[in-house]
Amino acid sequence: MRQNKIIIEPNKSIKYFWQELWQYRDLFYFLAWRDVLVRYKQTVIGIAWSVLRPVLSMIVFTVIFGKLAKLPSGNIPYPILVFSAMLPWHFFSNTFTISSNALIANVNMVSKVYFPRIIIPTVSMVVSLVDFMISFVILIGLMVWYGFYPDWKIIVLPFLMFLAILTSLGAGYWIAALNVKYRDFRHIVPFVAQFGLYISPVGFSSDVIPEQWRLLYSINPMVGVIDGFRWALSGNNAPIYWEGFCLSVVLAFLLFIFGGIFFLKTERGFADVI
């Protein structure tokens, strides 16, 4: 089972990449387990946090965009419109934030132990996923409250989640790798998380974007993910803009693939510069 002959050379071949990743699957598991455990160790605060944050932002967005700005929401109750977007968005921003800083937060592991480095930023999606599940329960409660039920399209949610994972990890890999050498990339992270919340269609429906700009708007892969979520969760009330969605999907894949390649290319120098 173990790869028994190790050849150490200046340029590592990535021939064994998958094999190695498989060997270290337990490390992935335990690191994820550590993150989840630590996050919910002080149980009340831990879970309350992952409930409060999306709920409060949902209320604020509903009041500002729905009540004050009176933006259209189709036939969907505004809180559900916001919350169904809040879920993937929070998943993205959590994963992206943690994975970008993951290498720096684990300096000791990077400089003292060998393992496929890509495990570290990747693990961070697990905690966000747990948070996502908790928020999802709230969404269900909200839907029951408003008597608003999704139809069969809900089955595409796993695919949309997969898309959100690709986007957040792709971006996370880039920044994590750059962060090792240039520490000021960590200032970009909160900026993206903050700014992205307002330029992504979280507080409003993408329908408010003028028709001629919608394709351009979809360059942000999270637009595709969020629109997809609304489409999947709100019956026939949120039609999807397919051209934009396809563009988002393609870009999400590209972001992930190139982010991963960039990470693997720079990986070997991490211990020298961190």
Binding site: N4, K5, I6, I7, I8, E9, P10, N11, K12, S111, K112, V113, Y114, R268, G269, A271, D272
Partner: peptide, 15 residues
């Protein structure tokens, strides 16, 4: 030898 950092030149084989 622990593969934490890469050599600049040369090689090592570990069985």
């Amino acid at each position: 030898l622990s593969r934490i950092t890469a050599p600049t030149t040369g090689r090592a084989t570990i069985n």
